[in-house]
């Protein structure tokens, strides 16, 4: 039994994967977890409080807008915005920048809207604490969606694509 720990070495076992190579994969998975957890939280709130009084249906807008913003942000690549991609596309570099600007505006706008829903819709009217929880859900959802957009956009590096 003596010395049976001698074979253990740190850092060079086979399970030591190269995290730099895997960066895009991890960012994609993290983005997926955030995105779908956010949407399942909102589904949970919607089935738990189906009445219009506790949970106004118009509040779903900020989640939808954040999803649209996510699609917009990730539909253009970073290379297109910097102008070092091979093809110009149909609206060029300026168009890509304007598109990305609008996408980020939608994303931040939905985050701000979710804060408004939390305070204006649930905290200030002093409903039950369940309602405040319900409003916090929106904040969590929207910030999840925003973080997920940022992770999926900037967590991945496009150098690995070449």
């Amino acid at each position: 039994m003596s010395g049976f720990l001698d074979g253990i070495r740190c850092g060079d076992c086979e399970c030591n994967v190269d995290w730099g190579e895997r960066r895009n994969t991890i960012a994609s998975i993290a983005a997926g977890v955030l995105f779908f957890t956010g949407w399942w939280i909102i589904i949970d709130a919607a089935v738990k409080y189906p009445d219009e009084g506790t949970f106004h249906h118009a509040y779903h807008t900020c989640g939808v807008i954040a999803t649209v913003a996510f699609l917009m942000i990730n539909a253009v690549s970073n290379g297109q915005v910097r102008g070092d991609s091979y093809s110009e596309g149909c609206i060029g570099q300026t168009g890509a920048r304007v598109w990305l600007f609008l996408g980020f505006m939608l994303a931040f706008g939905s985050l701000i809207a979710s804060m408004w829903i939390l305070f204006g819709g649930f905290v200030v009217p002093r409903k039950s604490c369940l309602s405040v929880f319900c409003g916090a859900i929106f904040l969590i959802l929207s910030s999840f969606l925003l973080i997920r957009g940022l992770v999926f956009k900037f967590g991945r590096t496009e150098d690995l694509w070449q």
Partner: peptide, 9 residues
Amino acid sequence: ELAYFLTTG
């Protein structure tokens, strides 16, 4: 990467 995203979802 899109496939990983959807699978995670």
